[in-house]
Every structure is written in C-alpha cells, then in structure tokens.
Design a protein around this nucleic acid. Structure first.
Length: 427
DNA sequence: TCTGGGGTCCTAGGACCC
DNA sequence: TCTGGGGTCCTAGGACCC
C-alpha cells in the first residue's frame, strides 16, 4: 500500500495573515500588494468577488477603494514567513514527515494505516491551525502529490466539501473528481501544455490520466509523463524529507523610480548581495558564481530598452559579502550602458554547495585573507542584525540611494518585533 | 503615471573529444 | 572529388510553480 499524502495550504495566505491581526477588516475586500505596491498578490474572498485577479496591477483596481472600501496592504514578508513557520510546527505535531513546498503550503506524509479516519484527520489539522494562528486552510488527501494538489483544489472549489477532500477512503471518488477537473487545474499543466493538449481533445484530468504515461513521454516530455503517472495514483515525484540546499539564491527588486546613474545601481546590487549572502550563510553553504542582471521596464512602450546579465565565476567557493560585492561591481562594468532608464536590478548566486562537503582546493593561495574577510563579514552581520539589513554595506555602496521600491502601507511586524506586539484594549 | 519576486527542472544545441 | 559516428559536458532559455 502507498503512503498517504496530504497537501495543506493557507487560504488567501497573505490576506489572511493581515486579517488575523485586523479583525475589524474581516468581511471587507482586502488585497496585499507586491514590491513597489505594483500588483495584487493576495486577495480576501471579498476582493476576489470584486473580480480582482491574481497579479493584477493595482492601478487597475484602485478605484474600488472609493466605491467598495477596498483596503490594500504592502507585502510584509517578515510577518507571513513567521506565521508560515508556525503552521509548519503545528503540522509536525501530526507527523514527522512535513515537506514545506512554499510559504503557504506543505506536504505531509503518513504511513498507510488501515482504518485511519482521514476525513477526521483533515478536519483536525484545519481546526488546530485555525485556532492557533487564525489562518483558514484547505486539505487534500491522496496517495500522490499531484492528486493531493488536485484534491486540495477541489476543497477550495467546492465549498460543500468543508475544506477537506479525501481521495483515499473511497476509490471511486478519484475518478469522479478527475472527470470534473479540467487539465489547466492540474499541477504541472501551464499555458503552453494546456493549449497543446486541448488541441488534441484532452480536456479533463481524466482524459489526461487515460492518455497514458508512455504516450505522454514520447509525444511530450518526462515531466508530463510523471504528471500522468501521478494522476493514476502511481507516485512519480520524490519525497523531500530533508531540508535541502537551494540550487540558487535570487535577490532582485524593481526600483521605485527610473534610475540612470551607475552608482545607484551599484548601491542596489550591494543590497541584493547582502540579502542573498545572508541566506547562503544561514544554510552553511558557499557558491561558486554570481550573476548580475539589469534591465529597463519591459512593459514600457516609450522607454529605450536594454537588458543584460553577466556571470562571474570564482575558482574557489565563496560566502563572503566583500568578495561577492567586488564581483558584482566587476560584472556591472561589463554590461553597463549609459543613457537607459533602468527599472530593475538583481543578482543570483549559483553553483551552491554545503560548506561541510567542501574539498580543499589544492591550488588556492595560502594566505590570511579568508580570516580577514570573515572578521569583516561578522562585523557587517552584527550591525545588520542590530540595525536592520542594509545598515552596513561594503565599499562605496550607499544603502540609501533612491532606488528602493515603494511600500506605503506595510503592517507592523506583530509577531517578530517587540515594538510591534499588538495591544489589546479592554474598555 | 503606475505591470512582483523567488524558485525548480528539463531540453536543445553548441563545443569539444576520440 | 571525396568529409563519420558516437559520446559528454555545459549553458541559455523555456515552462512551470507559488
């Protein structure tokens, strides 16, 4: 028998996090905005009812502020990440096998115990999370990740399910569900595949399951073949129990306004480097290369367009801000062009590996630079820990600049900052 | 006027080798 | 005049995800 796999995900996660601390806004249309207050990246039920789409530019829906009392929050990822890790801890109370998939969803694995009441399990998970964090969730239960995702979609789509869909206990339910879900609702089917498959008459998830693994493999790709296999109840995706290293770490931001001068772009890159390296060091890892990217606003019809990237590689693995910042500046020298209205910059750390598995480089120069760099690194880190990321930076990098994105309505860090702990008034 | 940020995996094709 | 076949490795870019 196969293991039982549950997918638990937070409903309207970011909007729910805001509402958990602002119960006065429950029942109102609420959206959470991306960096630069640009797009809607989470919507309360009432905001969805207004027809606001995922990732819709805010300027297109701002008029609802006046007509329908729409409330917009700037994204507060510190808050959402903290709530997310609390939810993961709760799930770990149900099973040791929890694999967080994104900030708002986790897979949970259970051994195939016969006689376990899976519907009750799902409901217990939901009510525990709701009581302890205030976040509503949906639970999909099956024997493969893809089916658990589909069950979870169904739990959202059909309110009658009460937020839990179990495809294990009643075998026939799987086929009935596959017949009513269309392929674009299947995990792994995006725009391109949706179009091609529909042209072949494959419309429902059941059609896709019946298409067969080998046909999917020969006519499309191994990726689609795995999806087909999983829809048929045969696990084809690995279970990640361990916390793995990232393959790459990306840090990027759009600017708050158009930027023409190189110094300001350097300042932004330096900030991105310090964020990414902080993450790298938290994983006790090192990277071998850094890619920098700069670009103008691709959506603009009037701006002169330019976009480029450059990768700098080091013969020895690195995890210090000083060296990466130098490399980023050198990379920028390679691709910088004067006269363009830059809209965005970013960096990617590549070829990441654990520091523990490192082999000594026989040809590395044997001097004391590493120690000095590490001292410098610790000083920068302690300043940033105390005064906030970006307080201390390297070289000519000014942390101020005028590149920072807008974030005009950020909520307090209720759960991670003593100064922001909510107070309760008792009248 | 105003269109996000952070990831993973796969594939095709070029460079290179014998 | 005639110009192979098989393999590996690497990288850029596509597709997909939340």
């Amino acid at each position: 028998m196969n293991d039982i796999i549950c997918l638990v995900d937070g409903n309207n996660m970011f909007a729910s996090c805001e509402l958990a601390f602002r119960p006065d806004l429950i029942g109102k249309p609420v959206v959470v905005l991306s960096s630069n207050d640009a797009c809607c990246i989470a919507r309360s039920y009432e905001a969805k009812a207004l027809g606001i789409k995922m990732a819709q530019p805010y300027f297109e829906v701002r008029h609802f502020e006046k007509t329908h009392g729409l409330i917009a929050f700037s994204a507060n990822f510190t808050l959402y990440t903290d709530i997310s890790s609390r939810i993961v801890s709760i799930l770990e109370g149900f099973t040791p096998h929890v694999a967080p998939y994104s900030i708002d969803e986790s897979f949970c694995r259970f051994p195939p115990l016969t006689g376990m009441d899976l519907l009750k399990l799902g409901n217990d998970i939901r009510s525990t999370i709701l009581t302890q964090t205030g976040i509503g969730t949906g639970v999909g239960i099956s024997t493969t990740k893809t089916l658990a995702k589909l069950a979870n979609n169904a739990a959202k789509k059909f309110p009658k399910t009460g937020g839990v869909v179990d495809l294990v206990t009643d075998e026939k339910r799987r086929e009935r569900l596959l017949a009513v879900m269309e392929i674009n609702e299947v995990w792994g089917i995006g725009k391109a595949l949706n179009k091609k498959l529909r042209a072949m008459g494959i419309i429902t998830a059941l059609d896709l399951a019946k298409f067969g693994e080998s046909a999917a493999n020969s006519q499309f790709s191994v990726t689609l073949a795995r999806t087909v296999s999983e829809l048929n109840g045969i696990p084809a995706l690995p279970w990640e129990d361990d916390i793995e290293l990232n393959d790459q770490i990306i840090a990027t931001r759009s600017f708050g306004e158009k930027i023409f001068d190189k110094e300001t772009v350097i300042a932004s890159l330096s900030y991105h480097v310090s964020r990414a390296v902080k993450k790298l060091r938290l994983q006790n890892a090192v990277a071998h290369s850094i890619t920098i990217h700069i670009r103008t606003n691709a959506n603009s019809k009037i701006d002169k367009q330019y976009s480029n990237s450059y990768t700098c590689r080091s013969s020895t693995p690195i995890n210090d801000v000083v060296t990466f910042t130098k490399m980023a500046k050198a990379g920028l020298d390679e691709i910088w062009r004067d006269g363009f209205p830059y809209a965005k910059s970013g960096i990617t750390l590549n070829e990441i590996e654990s520091k523990n598995h490192l082999q000594e480089d026989l040809f590395a120069s044997d001097d004391n630079h590493d120690e000095k760099k590490n001292d410098m690194q610790s000083v920068i880190e302690s300043i940033n820990t105390r005064y906030g990321l970006g307080a201390a930076n390297v070289g000519s990098a000014k942390s101020g600049g005028n590149w920072q994105p807008k974030s005009e309505n950020r909520s307090p860090n209720y759960t991670t900052s003593w100064a922001d702990i909510p107070t309760i008034k008792a009248d």
